[in-house]
Lab assay of single mutants.
Amino acid sequence: KKIKIDLKKGPEGLGFTVVTRDSSIHGPGPIFVKNILPKGAAIKDGRLQSGDRILEVNGRDVTGRTQEELVAMLRSTKQGETASLVIAR
């Protein structure tokens, strides 16, 4: 099931960490939400869960991207702006 979640970045950030699983010589594996932090946009919104697979960030497919690339995409969202995620659960 795909779910679109918009998180408005506040002073505590987006409020979640990510982890890559099953990376191989063929490229990075899928990226999942690792933890929801006690402060930040994710816990206020309440929909994002540990174990959700991140498919898109701000309309860009993240398949084949590294964890570092995904984190850079999320960090490029400025405070007060919205990060738009599509996740699979």
Rank of each mutant, 00 (worst) to 15 (best):
K34N: 15
V33W: 00
G10E: 15
R53F: 07
R65T: 05
I3R: 01
T63E: 06
L85H: 01
L37S: 10
V19Y: 15
K4W: 07
Q79Y: 05
I3M: 08
I43N: 10
H26K: 10
A88K: 15
I25Q: 13
E56C: 10
I87N: 05
S23E: 14
D52N: 01
S84I: 06
P28K: 05
E81Y: 04
Q49Y: 11
V19C: 14
S84W: 09
G46L: 03
E81R: 13
I31G: 07
G29C: 09
A42M: 02
V71E: 15
A42L: 02
H26F: 09
T20Q: 11
L7W: 01
G15Y: 00
H26L: 13
I36Y: 00
K44Y: 06
K2T: 03
A88S: 14
K39I: 08
T82E: 10
I87D: 02
E56K: 12
G51V: 01
V62E: 03
Q49E: 12
F32P: 02
R21N: 10
N35P: 00
G59S: 08
F16S: 05
P30C: 03
D61E: 13
D6G: 12
G51T: 03
V62Y: 04
T82D: 14
L48S: 00
R53Q: 14
V62F: 10
E68P: 11
D6M: 13
H26V: 14
T82S: 13
S76R: 06
L37H: 03
D61L: 07
K9I: 15
S50L: 13
V18Y: 05
V71W: 15
K78W: 03
S23C: 07
L37N: 04
L55Q: 12
L85Y: 02
S23N: 08
E56V: 06
G29V: 11
L7G: 00
K1G: 01
N35I: 10
Q79W: 06
G40T: 02
K34Y: 03
G46R: 11
D45P: 01
L85F: 13
S23T: 08
R60W: 07
T66W: 03
A41R: 05
A83W: 06
P28D: 08
T82R: 10
R65I: 12
T77D: 11
G51L: 06
G15D: 01
V57W: 13
E81D: 12
S84P: 02
G27A: 09
G46A: 08
T63K: 07
G13I: 00
I54E: 00
L14H: 04
V18L: 15
P38W: 03
G13D: 09
I3A: 02
K78Q: 05
K78P: 09
Q79G: 12
D22C: 09
G15R: 00
T63S: 06
S24C: 04
L70H: 02
E69N: 06
G13P: 14
R75C: 10
R65A: 06
E81F: 06
V71Y: 15
L70R: 02
I5S: 00
S50K: 12
K78T: 11
R21D: 12
S84F: 11
S50V: 13
D52Y: 00
G27H: 11
R47Y: 03
L74H: 01
T66Q: 06
G15F: 00
N35M: 13
L70S: 03
K44A: 09
V18S: 05
D52K: 00
P38H: 14
G13W: 01
I31D: 01
G64L: 06
L37T: 14
G40A: 03
A72G: 09
L14G: 00
I36P: 00
L85N: 03
R75T: 01
A83F: 13
E81V: 08
H26W: 04
L74S: 03
A88R: 11
H26C: 11
L85D: 03
P38G: 12
L48D: 01
R89V: 00
G64A: 08
Q49I: 10
K44L: 09
A72C: 14
N58H: 06
D45L: 02
R21H: 10
E81S: 09
A83L: 11
G51S: 06
V33S: 01
T17N: 15
I3N: 03
K39S: 10
P28N: 13
D22H: 04
R89L: 00
E81M: 14
K1L: 00
K9M: 15
V86Y: 09
P30N: 13
G10M: 15
G80I: 03
G80N: 14
S76G: 08
I36K: 01
S23G: 06
D52C: 00
G29E: 13
K1V: 02
G29P: 06
L48C: 02
G27L: 10
D61M: 05
Q67C: 03
R21K: 12
R65C: 11
E69V: 05
G59A: 04
K39N: 12
N58E: 05
S24Y: 03
K9G: 14
K34I: 15
I31T: 10
T82G: 08
D45M: 02
M73H: 15
L74N: 03
P28H: 04
A88P: 03
G29T: 08
T63Y: 07
H26R: 12
D61H: 07
L14M: 14
D22Q: 15
V33Q: 01
A41Y: 03
G59Q: 10
R21W: 14
G29L: 08
E56N: 10
V86C: 13
L48M: 08
K4A: 04
S50N: 13
G27Q: 10
T20F: 04
H26G: 14
I43H: 10
D52W: 00
G46I: 01
F32D: 10
K4Q: 04
N58S: 06
T66V: 03
E56L: 09
I87L: 14
E69T: 06
K39C: 11
G64T: 05
K8P: 11
V86P: 01
I5E: 00
S24Q: 14
I31L: 14
G64E: 07
T17W: 02
G46T: 09
L70D: 02
L14D: 00
A88V: 05
R75M: 15
I54T: 00
D45F: 01
I54W: 00
E68K: 06
Q67D: 13
P30H: 11
I31Y: 14
